[in-house]
């Protein structure tokens, strides 16, 4: 049964996409900023995992922690120094700013790491899972499980912690939150930091699956866009639903039309969806 295999591939892909998009969605929903840097953040996370494995033998699954910490610090700093200054400005301004910052970061990575594709080749891969005719590589499955766990962690953080509640308050109403004593700028910086952390951690997981190169950043950014529009903005469950939807679509659509069309397929779907249902599959009204 090829369809069961495609379904399994789609679900694995979908879990990874959820982690790619969750941080992007959080930043978009809370700060009303489209973070063009997100793709480069993911690539940077992958590089951190790659070098830690190559020089220190640290397993990429464990590299989630250092990659997350580094990216959180970077994201926090960028928000504090640059983005906070224009965070309430019109869309065009914030979008352009993150685009400019991305040009710098991406170019710096190109110079430092070159455009050559690298890949983490694990010395001791996990055994594959075989269920009847369905075959899933063990490391891919583990990466997906960790990606979903990370996404769930973000969900719990937003729901259960003080910081999370402050973030949600800012998302609901910036001014009211500020009147209630929330340090909005600090929360902005933490939110952006968490968005970057999620990107870095996802990047570490992806380092064993995708080839690593700064050129890939737009690919990841595109996926994050599509997932957000599919699932609706700023909601973690939305990222999961959108991620799974995109994963299944690419897996099944790629089989039906040929794998080279999967990008066109997802972008065409994005346009179609924006046309008919701009609030996403879950129907939550997005921020403007």
């Amino acid at each position: 049964m090829i369809y069961l295999q495609l379904l399994a591939n789609g679900i694995v892909l979908g879990g990874l996409y959820a982690a790619i998009a969750a941080g992007f969605s959080l930043v978009w929903g809370v700060l009303n900023v489209i973070n063009i840097l997100h793709g480069s953040f993911i690539v940077l996370g992958s590089y951190i995992a790659f070098f830690l494995y190559a020089y220190a033998g640290l397993h990429p699954f464990l590299a989630i922690v250092p990659a997350g910490i580094v990216l959180f610090a970077l994201g926090w700093a960028l928000q504090t120094v640059f983005i906070n200054r224009v965070v309430t400005a019109p869309v065009l301004i914030t979008l352009t700013l993150t685009f400019g910052l991305d040009l710098v970061l991406n170019n710096a990575m190109l110079v430092a790491f070159t455009a050559d594709y690298r890949k983490v080749n694990l010395a001791t891969p996990l055994p594959a899972l075989e269920l009847g005719s369905v075959f899933i590589p063990g490391d891919k499955l583990a990466a997906m499980v960790l990606a979903v766990a990370l996404t769930y962690g973000l969900y719990r953080l937003l729901g259960d912690s003080n910081v999370g509640r402050a973030i949600v308050a800012v998302r609901m109403d910036r001014e009211a939150a500020s009147l209630m004593g929330v340090e909005v700028k600090q929360i902005n910086a933490i939110t952006f930091g968490i968005g970057a952390l999620m990107a870095g951690a996802a990047g570490a997981l992806l380092s064993i699956i995708y080839p690593i190169s700064p050129i890939n950043s737009t690919l990841f950014l595109g996926k994050a866009f599509v997932v957000c529009v599919l699932g609706g903005l700023g909601s973690v469950p939305g990222a999961l639903v959108g991620g799974l939807a995109l994963g299944l679509l690419e897996s099944l659509g790629g089989y039906a039309l040929g794998p080279e069309h999967s990008v066109t397929l997802s972008f065409s779907l994005l346009l179609l969806l924006l046309f008919v249902r701009p609030s996403g599959l879950l129907g939550r009204r997005g921020y403007e």
């Binding site: 352009t96 700013l97 685009f99 400019g100 991305d102 040009l103 710098v104 170019n107």
Partner: peptide, 9 residues
């Protein structure tokens, strides 16, 4: 590209 980025920022 980075130079253009700095200009934009």
């Amino acid at each position: 590209a980075a130079a253009l980025g700095v200009i934009i920022v």
